[in-house]
Design a protein around this nucleic acid. Structure first.
Lengths: 335, 335
DNA sequence: CTGAAAGCGCTTACAG
DNA sequence: CTGAAAGCGCTTACAG
């Protein structure tokens, strides 16, 4: 019923192999033949059957984005989808399709990754940090399957990964505050166990120390995810006698809450208290005055993941181990 | 190199066809044979080559989610990805994989949809409203390709779609406010041309009118997307002599701004001014006090899209034309 | 520069 | 209940 390569061959008066070669850009076909074949393709509206192409070539031109998906995922972690968009943009340029797979409901550890690797339904995978269990890592390493991991696995591994340098982000925050003349700096972070939060604090602390402005431990606060806990921490810090000149918020939810506390205490920004936050999204658009932000180009992280993988697939000898994107400072009205 | 169906057949002492039948659940195979085949599959760690399966069956067990993707897409429209998650959840249960395709950079109108339909790389598509151009619609209709559209196409069409009833959402808002005793109600919406906004207003207006509480036109405000424009509209409405008792915000960005205006004007909620908003995500988690919300289960919209499509694929005779999800009221402290 | 033919790894009528 | 064989629609060594 649908047009096949043989129909095209017949219409162009050549063999199917020749049509195939034209489609695949072989340089050995004469211009005249090429033109006739292309004319036949156009007039018949021929599109190669991708199932047959994949089968014959032994490759799908498809990349799987392996991650963990639950209800409200897109709201709780829009960053993950922004990474996906970045990866998609570059992979589609390399003519890969992109599919997504959730491994959070695997019925046994490593189920999804096992099927992905052995099923041959994709040529490579991008693994979001949320999906990187030790079974996933082990399967990838054992099979040497083409991959890129989003997020630096914190253990020693031959896996290939891309990540943002959060320590450097902390340093950027410190550099900015120092340049603006703030020497007494506080920090409101997530839970103490939170990796990104601790990395950002690390960079901030180191840089402040290096410039001779040691951060007071009582101005370093480990908070949480809910509004009230954060709010109380903010008020405490803002009303303490050793209130810093500037506060660094580890994420923009904290910044929203801090700004509300500042306003309710009738303090003025940046004169009474300056602050900056990490991460532009998802909340800073609702903030007024506009905060100063150390942002991470999450889309670019996806782009790097995609291009790293695509380049490795085009040239399997390539040994890309890791890549790190840079944070970016956006000046606002709060510092 | 990798294990094929023939290796399994040999190990189990049967033919490849028999192995295939066991894998595909044919009921004609004896229990004893089935057991032997399954043992061979396990011991050889056999996983069928998906490329070969797709080719032989003439179907991919893959669904394409067609949408429009740009940088910051995940931040600007997290709802789209939540829909994707909902669709994914049900499609994966039906053993479909899901891939995404962006048609916003098509080099000619209808390029992506044309390739999708003719290339045979998927068995069906879900089309997000942002990707539904007239070329997309025309290609789908002409080919009768299995599909579901997210969002009611506002023109007459044989397309199958799912959507949320925004007029009903407006009605829910009105019902709630009336039940709470508010009879003078205002509305702050997006631009006048915004479809969802107008639908919500329509339901609100109709229901208020039906109960004998006509909304005053000066309390119906068409605003915009930026903080300051909305803020000014809020202040104007809050300080007008004909200030309503309650305000309905068409989206939660507006609600955040309204709440800030209320606080700065030292008004108290809900006594001086009550309000409710549509959409829980992405901003209401930053609001204090917690607002009353008419929420839309966007995930469920994706679930409906997925199951509608999956059921149609399993039973092509099925004629599902459209499906509408219901809004949900979440009581907060602002009404 | 072009084509005949084998092959990619399954599925499925069909025969027994 | 099981198997031999054709076939799905391409690609690609190989021969000419």
């Amino acid at each position: 019923m649908s047009v096949t390569i043989n129909d095209v061959a017949q219409a162009a008066g050549v063999s199917a192999s020749t049509v195939s070669k034209v489609i695949n850009g072989w340089t050995t076909i004469s211009p005249a033949t090429t033109a006739r074949v292309q004319a036949a393709i156009e007039s018949l509206h021929y599109v190669p059957n991708q199932r047959a192409v994949s089968f014959a070539k032994g490759a799908t031109k498809n990349i799987t984005f392996l991650t963990s998906i639950n209800k409200s995922q897109a709201y709780k972690n829009p960053h993950m989808f922004e990474i996906l968009c970045g990866a998609y943009s570059v992979l589609s340029k390399y003519n890969y399709t992109v599919s997504i797979t959730d491994n959070s409901s695997d019925t046994f550890p490593g189920e999804s990754i096992y099927r992905i690797i052995k099923g041959g339904a994709c040529d490579g995978i991008i693994v979001h940090g949320s999906a990187l269990t030790k079974d996933v890592a082990a399967n990838i390493v054992a099979s040497e399957f083409p991959h890129t991991i989003i997020g630096n696995p914190s253990y020693d591994t031959p896996l290939c990964w891309v990540d943002t340098n959060h320590v450097l982000g902390g340093q950027f925050a410190a550099d900015h505050l120092l340049a603006k003349g703030y020497t007494e700096v506080g920090f409101i972070g997530g839970r103490k166990s939170d990796y990104i939060s601790s990395q950002r604090l690390k960079g901030l602390r180191q840089t402040m120390l290096k410039s001779g402005n040691k951060m007071s431990t009582e101005n370093i606060i480990y908070s949480d995810h809910d509004f009230n806990t954060i709010y109380n921490h903010c008020v405490k810090l803002l009303t303490s006698k050793s209130r810093p000149q500037a506060i660094v918020c580890e994420n923009c939810f904290i910044a929203v809450v801090l700004q509300k506390a500042i306003e309710r205490l009738s303090l003025s920004t940046p004169d009474d208290i300056a602050f900056l936050t990490f991460d532009k999204y998802p909340y800073t658009s609702t903030m007024q005055p506009t905060p100063t932000i150390v942002d991470i180009d999450v889309y670019d992280l996806g782009v790097q993941a995609g291009s790293t993988l695509a380049r490795k697939l085009e040239n399997p000898k390539l040994l890309v181990q890791s890549y790190t994107t840079l944070p970016l400072l956006i000046q606002g009205a709060t510092t």
